[in-house]
Nucleic acid binder design. Structure first.
Lengths: 358, 358
DNA sequence: GGGCATAAATAATGCGCATTATCATCTTGA
DNA sequence: TCAAGATGATAATGCGCATTATTTATGCCC
């Protein structure tokens, strides 16, 4: 039999006051018309100290309050499997922030899985209510789900840029556009002009932004775009050789190893003949010992910032009634973090031949 | 304004019955004296289908029911940091099981940190009540905390063997004793006799069990024990050379790399001169490319089994009143999983010289 | 036709808290 | 002197559900 834990009523009895008084003391913010004298306040606090009382988070939540739980919903499986780690970095940052904020993390592992992806269905949706708010991670969110989120005014934050829904989706993203353009700059500075791009051309924001950054930077320098199809590593390698590319920007979905292998078979060496810049960390857990140049996505920082933002949104919501003006502006709600460069061993100056005959 | 979600009362109204009837239909188990006709039952179910009703887990919990949340408490930080990954494998298995059981995972990241370790203090303790039960991971649990857990009858399961508290702590552990003894057997079969042990001699169960397995196996073969102090890698390497050891069992807390390096400097090669068997996976995230022989701890399996066990305990508890006999016996409550051998490149037959002159 | 099981359900209660409405007791000012 | 505030609190309510106690038919036996 679960022994009775101290409740506000217990504390109240000990302090000789009513339960509501205890609640007011605890929450600090007594509504207009309710006042607690300093003397009573102290008696209550003393009783709390003695009993070691702490609020039952379930009851808090049911009564419409906050319960210091923030949820994490991932559209794919949360933990690394099959050699791919999508969320590790983010979770790290989230945990760090959660610790600092003093909140617990709820992973929605119960959500129904459809086509290998978790869905926020009607029943799954209701479970979100367990937490004060929720972080959303992953690519394949569903339009109707988003609409529902917005409709119900449930606090949430995306990790990763989201432009749909008229910019009403709060997110913390990585600035792929700027970072990718910057990589082109690095290559230009080393004399490269024949710069290719390898990566998916999908509709996900990361792909769009990387390609955008590549396209803009190349156009600004009046260089021709060279998209290499790496569906087949051998054919792709042939194409790279044929077009005499001296540098490749590689999206992390693509395993750069294979390309390097295929090029190696053709006598083309990395980085002397072809430089590689990786546009973010590889998702593949086991990489070989190559240290790639390129940029990294500040995943930890993104996770931490997202949780902090979510926490702020939750706070705002709870005092929305009393304090009309929202303190969260567009810059808070839509954060783009810079992606720092990485200096590895896959970047070298363009071959002399290319520099003399561009 | 969070739009009103469907409640049992809504469903009841639609079906023309009372809220309690809906509750009974949902839970299936109407108490003695309460009966619901098939016809009413169907009407309720139909209303549930139409509304898409699903229970509010918070209310469920407050009312003393279960809410399909299982907690995970780690004494160290949950996610990998500082190059060490303590829990990754476990979490993987836990998540898999959670998905199958249809429960959400709550990570108690809010617990107060004392001396770099999370503590289950009075306030942290109350928060456990958010979940139906909780898994405990990590080494440094506190005696009084354990007592409290037992006193309150809160459902929990340890990951990792626990022998204290008179065997009343449920756990899922790895059989280090058998696995370590088996490693001695592998070495014996290859002609080794001068077998050393490198690892902490602490009071944690894993160390105790590994040393126990080593000691027993060596004694059974009437071989002398050789504990090597690796506090200083150089001194340790000297000792290995001096004692002419041909094989070393290494606990994973110890980084085997350093030992091999130190030995290499003395012209002693792995595995030709000295074989190494690793007693479990290394916690160090970045290892070099050596593939160690030894055994692995089935962490995923442990995590999954522990969650399943926890779930069963929770279920038992809820029907403890009606069904007096407990269906969980000692073998359920104290599971030891075998640790499969790993064939790497660090194991070789004993040098000829040692075989002829043992 | 009164007592009495049985069937089929509902009403009522409480979980622990936040919040709203309400109530006493003092001041003041005119 | 008495209404109008101000002060300091309490009582009451409801969140959504599980559970216990109670009620209302209906058939059946003697």
């Amino acid at each position: 039999m679960p022994r009775h834990r101290f409740t506000q009523a217990d504390v109240a009895a000990m302090a000789g006051v009513s339960q509501s008084t205890v609640s007011f003391v605890l929450n600090g913010n007594a509504p207009i018309g309710v006042r607690i004298s300093e003397e009573t306040r102290n008696r209550v606090l003393e009783a709390i100290r003695i009993t070691g009382y702490s609020a039952n988070p379930v009851a808090q939540r049911l009564a419409g309050g906050r319960n210091q739980i923030l949820g994490v919903f991932t559209y794919e499986k949360t933990f690394p499997r099959g050699g791919r780690d999508f969320y590790g970095g983010f979770l790290n940052g989230i945990e760090r922030a959660a610790e600092q904020l003093g909140v617990d993390m709820l992973l929605f592992t119960s959500a129904r899985v459809v086509d290998g992806r978790r869905r926020l269905t009607r029943d799954g949706w209701q479970r979100l209510g367990l937490a004060d708010g929720c972080l959303l991670l992953g690519q394949r969110e569903d339009q109707s789900e988003l609409q529902h989120l917005l409709d119900t005014n449930y606090p949430f934050v995306f990790i990763g840029k989201r432009v749909s829904e008229g910019g009403r989706l709060p997110y913390v993203g990585a600035d792929y556009v700027e970072a990718t353009a910057r990589q082109v700059g690095r290559l230009r500075a080393l004399g490269h002009t024949r710069i290719g791009y390898v990566g998916p051309q999908g509709a996900d924001q990361a792909s769009i932004d990387r390609i955008d950054g590549y396209t803009r930077a190349m156009r600004a320098d009046r260089l021709p775009l060279r998209f290499v199809d790496m569906h087949d590593a051998q054919a792709g390698a042939d194409e790279i050789v044929e077009r005499r590319l001296t540098a490749i920007l590689v999206a992390p979905e693509q395993s750069p190893d294979e390309i390097v292998d295929a090029l190696g078979q053709r006598g083309v060496r990395m980085p002397d003949d072809v430089s590689f810049l990786l546009l973010g960390q590889s998702h593949h857990l086991r990489q070989r010992d190559v240290s790639w140049s390129g940029f990294t996505v500040p995943r930890e920082e993104m996770g931490a910032r997202a949780l902090v933002l979510l926490s702020r949104i939750v706070d705002e919501d709870s005092r929305a009634a009393s304090d009309s003006r929202s303190r969260l502006d567009d810059a808070d709600l839509h954060q783009m973090l810079p992606c720092p460069d990485v200096d590895g061993t896959s970047l070298a100056p363009a071959p002399i031949s290319e520099r003399t005959h561009p």
